[in-house]
Design a protein around this nucleic acid. Sequence first.
DNA 1: ATAAAGCGGTTTATAATATAAACCAAATTT
DNA 2: AAATTTGGTTTATATTATAAACCGCTTTAT
Lengths: 93, 93
Amino acid sequence: MKELDPILHSQLRLAVMSILMNVDEADFVYLKEQTESTAGNLSVQLDKLSAAGYITVTKGFVGKKTRTACQVTEQGRKAFEEYVNALKSYLNL
Amino acid sequence: MKELDPILHSQLRLAVMSILMNVDEADFVYLKEQTESTAGNLSVQLDKLSAAGYITVTKGFVGKKTRTACQVTEQGRKAFEEYVNALKSYLNL
DNA sequence: ATAAAGCGGTTTATAATATAAACCAAATTT
DNA sequence: AAATTTGGTTTATATTATAAACCGCTTTAT
């Protein structure tokens, strides 16, 4: 049985990646809304994805307000696809 | 975003369920081989699946040796299918 | 017959993970 | 200018996964 990448095998991290796979970039507030997570949890999980090299996190400003934008990296994209493949063998899809 | 049933969202428990979905029944030793898990871990995870009502665990004998057989329940089957559906929304399958 | 090794597990301790609660600085509203 | 909101981070706690230690029984070797 294939291993399931533990970085992706987490509900919130998977949800974030799932969004980022379809959307070019998304900011903290948007991800929080879509995933219905708490800010703290999201912050931690974004760090992990970032530390794994699966996403980049860019802090900037919109007017006077901070804005944290996230994008999936090529490495993240690949990892996501491999995760999907591994899962398929469990789910018989 | 749909919730992912935490009982199934665990590599080893998912692997076990995946096997049981295709096989009518499987015993402890077989599951241990197929999943390449340690006996302790498998024992704990079978208990959780059983406590959740997703599998039944039947202890018997083959000759003088004990044999622990597992089968997926109707409830387990349903939960597995719902889990697959929920996951699909994350993976865009 | 007895000690040692193996089989089929369970229980318990530990490490890792996920999650929420508490907190913080800057901006906005009252 | 005090209170509230926004956009987060840090830290503490609960949950989970995992492995290590153990247990009773059986088989094998001495």
